[in-house]
């Protein structure tokens, strides 16, 4: 699914990612943990193709294609989805209209038939219901006036409707109450399948009780300093990053 080799990247001339190697096979869920400022969001932006995040070396292949050469919208159409750590507000833009435009743009790019308004309404209502989200979230303007938790849930709703092959969730669990956390986990678990993968960035082991990862990686100082099974998250929860970082140094 995703194969990252020796990836280095800088922002405003400052090196942030200092050589990332990471392979996420089809059907696997990997968790990335790490101290604040270690480069987790930077990695997600680089993978999604954000302007200003300059790749200075290495490669990233997505289903064999050169991910780094693609425009952000082409990456989305190819099946890469990023749930933002800080979802962006779009004043005056209706959530349902935004999502339908996005979904149809992706479908067009993949040579699939577009959904008409009725088909989309059905799909979006069904997904909202499955995730126990109120219908009116679809009618409101994208993230405008949403609470922190609602914004995160809206990211999960978008993910459910867009059905990506690779979902990157950047701290989608932060700021969620316990019920919402389960909803987010359900959203990710519903996507799980032999041909889909997820990269879950989180600070809390708690989420990983619901989304059990195949692998856990520790990102510190722009490098992955340790990888392991789900038990690594428990270890971090118990002893913090300091010992892991010291060990790697």
């Amino acid at each position: 699914m995703l194969k990252i080799e020796g990836l280095t990247a800088s922002v405003d001339g400052k090196a942030i990612l200092k050589g990332i190697d990471l392979v996420v096979p089809d059907g696997e869920v990997h968790a990335i943990m790490g101290p604040n400022g270690s480069g987790k969001s930077t990695l997600s932006y680089v993978l999604a193709g954000r302007d200003g995040y300059e790749v200075t070396g290495g490669s990233a292949a997505f289903d064999g294609a050169d991910l780094l050469a693609m425009e952000p919208e082409a990456r989305a159409a190819a099946g890469l989805f990023l749930a933002f750590q800080y979802p962006v507000e779009l004043p005056g833009v209706n959530n349902a209209n935004f999502l339908r435009t996005a979904l149809n743009a992706q479908r067009r790019a993949r040579g699939e038939a577009e959904l008409d308004a009725v088909q989309f309404l059905k799909l979006s209502r069904a997904e909202a219901k499955r995730l126990s989200m109120p219908d009116d979230m679809l009618k409101r303007n994208v993230n405008v006036g949403f609470s922190g938790g609602e914004k995160k849930r809206n990211e999960v709703l978008q993910m459910a409707i867009l059905r990506p092959k690779l979902a990157i969730l950047d701290e989608t669990d932060s700021g969620l109450d316990i019920d919402a956390l389960k909803i987010v986990a359900d959203g990710v678990n519903a996507l799980r399948g032999p041909a889909t993968s997820a990269l879950v960035i989180t600070h809390y082991q708690r989420l990983l009780d619901y989304i059990v990862p195949d692998r856990v990686h520790v990102l510190a100082g722009g490098r992955i300093i340790r990888s392991g099974g789900p038990e690594l998250a428990l270890e971090l929860e118990a002893s913090g990053y300091a010992s892991v970082v010291a060990e790697a140094a």
């Binding site: 999604a48 193709g49 954000r50 302007d51 200003g52 425009e71 952000p72 919208e73 990456r75 989305a76 159409a77 989805f81 990023l82 933002f84 979802p87 962006v88 507000e89 779009l90 935004f98 999502l99 435009t101 996005a102 979904l103 743009a105 992706q106 790019a109 978008q158 867009l162």
Partner: peptide, 12 residues
């Protein structure tokens, strides 16, 4: 810029 990137990440 973040609004544009958000939209493009969704495929627009």
């Amino acid at each position: 810029e973040d609004q544009l990137f958000y939209c493009r990440q969704r495929g627009l």
